[in-house]
Design a binder for these strands. Structure first.
Length: 770
DNA sequence: GATTAGGGTTCG
């Protein structure tokens, strides 16, 4: 990755690692501990020699580090942990770090240590590979006998960026017993399935220009670590695959440190890797490798085509892959789950309807508006039931090797099924033969574009009046979830209760209610936008324009001479390869140049990043944090005055910045504040009334991010329109629409007093109604 | 630094 220094040697022991990093004591580490902001502070107890399993193409280094005991009551437990570094990072580490050095590590993954019985160390290990990893090294020589000793050596010196590169072996050159990195075009795959061991297994077969085929088995207990393959023709890059002889042919198997990137195989489409790795190396050569394979595959007539078919083209008694949206699902019995799906096309053959009790059905068929022959009933069996359990109505799926089954004339439409001979149902049979399985596709997948535009045009087409009589009869309107301006997005099946019932029950509990919104506070949307510190939890009002402008005027009036240019521009490599982003640091101290707040807004322009600075003791520093520390286009980013440890702005540090606000904040020593919504809603039904907060789930409720709303009048207007629909101004309560809500009731303690609070969660305003 | 599976249609 460009522009990132994974290993940073800190010569001044007073220099603190970035403020957003949260230190985790090694004894407290568990498999679920890995998160970008987590760090460990530890001394290098043992450093093993750099290992290079295959020629010059890859490195592994093992080291044992021990919790740094600079605290009054050091946590007890396993204080020493195995740490494995991969690739160029391993080489850099080997050359830079010595036993006895103090490290702060961030961006690691946590795995199970396979050597726990042998070495008696921590049951987990730390795994570090590539770009998002940060290693801050405090050399032993700069550390005094006491951890608090102050040294006067010169500050931060960076090592050179990693120079070593990954090498990829052509499939024709593979030899049993080696561990290699490979690229290939997928010709066959199975989605991950549970093994009899501890892991999930996914299998794939790949090929390349040499036309050699390689079968691979990937084992990992984490589903997300498996290659995210959507269809044959996808291109994969696999790291650390071990070649083994099986039945006379070389096969690949994942080994420790395995990682995968997957790309769409369509020539000309964006080269966007799909991966769970937060850290991976991806450069121009990788882009070229993908494009080369795409071009080659496009000319190969004998590569297997995908079996994707839309519902309108399904032939009875065939197997095919279906890309669809899940509308609803129901557990039929222990080994069979029913999925009701659609893809926006109308099946040529009549579809079998498997009807189930309303209570047993999770999700809703309301989006189909009763339209005919659009909903496919998919029965998934046995091993696929586990995967089906995790599926959320509304999500997009690819179901592989689905069997289109025609109801035979002899079979009566039993089991609640409706439809006679020839009606089509769909079955995902047990086992994984032919790649049978289900995969959830991300909402932004290019494979969903056609499906989504079909569904959208169905939604916007009111002309289908012949089917109006299918819609719900008026007498049942009150029970119809469509008759609510909001929709619950949770998957638990709570019975709906009254507000009186909510009030009389003991928290904590989750309730489903149908209520009207009598009023809400604050009435001004801008006051509902707050700044929240994820660290100290403080909640602040967003400073108004005048307050910021006045802070700028103050800075302008401060005495301060400056020799630096008034503004300068740095071009930074962004994490997206090949794209540069400019970051502008601009002085606001010089009267002559009048860097007022208004100037700042103008200069930050459409997408430019601007950090306002002033001069302090001849060095640049931020304005105080009552003003934004970063302007980017219309967006303003604030820092927490409590939790930030603002540093001087160094030109050197500028060169290290990636142009995302998190990294800029990190370099500046700022703990960023998040924009949040906070609205108090007075809810009422026939039995009672109560106040509920819209807070954690407010963004999904409005379908707008708070930071976008802050920067966009359009978004604010949109939210205001929503609120006006939910709570029409001036009308009586009877005019207010009914809302289906999911409420969480909980207690909070404030100065010794216990109070019951309610929050609206898992609820969203229906988009089409706004 | 062990194990899993090792493609090739269900039979509901």
């Amino acid at each position: 990755m460009l522009g990132v220094m994974p290993i940073c040697v800190v010569s001044d022991p007073r220099t603190q690692p970035p403020a957003h990093l949260q230190r985790l004591p090694i004894p407290h580490l568990s498999l679920s501990s890995a998160a970008p902001h987590m760090s460990v502070k530890a001394k290098v107890r043992k450093k093993f020699p750099l290992v290079c399993p295959e020629g010059d193409c890859d490195y592994i280094l093992k080291t044992v580090i021990q919790e740094y005991e600079d605290q009054q009551n050091p946590p007890s437990g396993f204080t020493s942990i195995n740490t494995i570094l991969f690739g160029p990072l391993a080489k850099d580490f080997s050359e830079t770090v010595a036993e006895g050095d103090l490290l702060v590590l961030a961006g690691f993954a946590v795995g199970r240590s396979p050597t726990v019985k042998k070495d008696g160390l921590h049951p987990c290990n730390l795994q570090l590979a590539g770009g998002d990893v940060h290693v801050y090294v405090y050399p032993a020589s700069t550390l005094g006998p006491s951890p608090n000793k102050v040294s006067s050596r010169t500050p931060a010196v960076n090592t050179e960026a990693a120079k070593a590169k990954y090498a990829y072996v052509a499939l024709k050159d593979l030899k049993a017993g080696t561990i290699v990195n490979v690229y290939g075009v997928v010709t066959f795959f199975k989605q991950p399935f549970r093994t009899k061991g501890t892991d999930y297994c996914s299998t794939l077969k790949i090929t390349d220009e040499s036309d050699v085929k390689l079968g691979c088995s990937i084992f990992s207990e984490k589903l997300e670590d498996h290659p995210q393959i959507y269809k044959t023709g996808d291109i994969v890059r696999l790291h650390r695959v071990k070649m083994q002889l099986f039945n006379g042919a070389v096969n690949g198997m994942s080994t420790l440190g395995f990682s995968a990137l997957t790309f769409d195989g369509t020539a000309g489409s964006p080269v966007t890797p799909r991966t769970s790795s937060r850290s991976f190396h991806f450069g121009d050569e990788d882009r070229q490798a993908v494009e080369r394979l795409r071009a080659w595959a496009a000319g190969q007539a004998d590569l297997p085509a995908t079996s994707a078919v839309v519902l309108s083209a399904v032939q009875p008694r065939t197997y095919f892959d279906l890309t669809c949206q899940l509308l609803a699902k129901a557990q039929m019995d222990a080994c069979c789950t029913l999925l009701k799906v659609w893809d926006g096309t109308m099946c040529a053959d009549p579809l079998l309807n498997v009807s189930v009790e309303q209570d047993a059905l999770e999700g809703s068929l309301a989006p189909t508006r009763g339209r005919h022959n659009l909903v496919a009933n998919v029965l998934v069996y046995e091993n696929h039931v586990e995967m089906a359990r995790e599926l959320k109505p509304g999500s997009y799926l690819c179901i592989y090797n689905l069997h289109a089954v025609a109801q035979s004339a002899e079979t009566p439409p039993g089991g609640g099924g409706a439809g006679g001979a020839g009606h089509l149902s769909f079955q995902l049979h047990r086992g994984t033969a032919f790649g049978r399985g289900i995969r959830v596709l991300p909402d932004d997948s290019p494979d969903l574009q056609e499906l989504k535009s079909r569904l959208e045009s169905l939604e916007n087409d009111p002309s289908d009046s012949s089917l109006i009589e299918w819609s719900t009869p008026p007498e049942s309107l009150d029970m119809d979830p469509e008759n609510s301006l909001t929709v619950r997005t949770c998957d638990h099946t709570q019975e709906r209760v009254t507000l009186a019932c909510v009030k009389s029950s003991t928290p904590p509990r989750v309730s489903h209610v149908r209520v009207r919104l009598r009023s809400y506070q604050p009435e001004s949307l801008h006051q509902a936008l707050k700044l929240h510190c994820p660290n100290c939890k403080v909640l602040l009002d967003v400073p108004d324009e005048e307050a910021i402008a006045s802070r700028f005027r103050e800075a302008l009036s401060e005495a301060g001479c400056c020799s630096e240019p008034w503004a300068f521009t740095g071009h930074l490599d962004s994490c997206e390869p090949g794209r540069q982003i400019s970051l502008h640091l601009c002085r606001s101290v010089e009267k002559g140049t009048r860097a007022t707040f208004e100037e700042m807004c103008r200069m930050s322009g459409v997408q430019r990043s601007m950090v306002p600075v002033r001069s302090s003791e001849g060095r640049m520093t931020l304005l105080d944090l009552s003003a934004p520390f970063l302007f980017r286009g219309p967006k303003r980013y604030y820092g927490c005055t409590q939790c930030s440890q603002v540093k001087h702005v160094e030109l050197d540090t500028q060169a290290e910045m990636e142009a995302n606000e998190g990294t800029i904040a990190e370099v500046l020593g700022v703990q960023p504040l998040q924009y949040v919504f906070l609205v108090k809603m007075a809810l009422e039904d026939d039995t009672d009334c109560l106040d509920a907060l819209l807070w954690n789930d407010a963004e999904s409720f409005f379908c707008v991010s708070a930071s976008d709303a802050e920067a966009s009048q359009e978004q604010q207007d949109c939210i205001q329109q929503t609120l006006d629909k939910l709570c029409p101004p001036g009308g009586s309560l009877e005019d207010h629409p009914w809302l289906d809500l999911c409420l969480r009731s909980y207690t909070v303690e404030e100065s010794g007093q216990h109070m019951v609070c309610h929050q609206i969660l898992n609820t969203a305003v229906r988009r089409t109604d706004v």
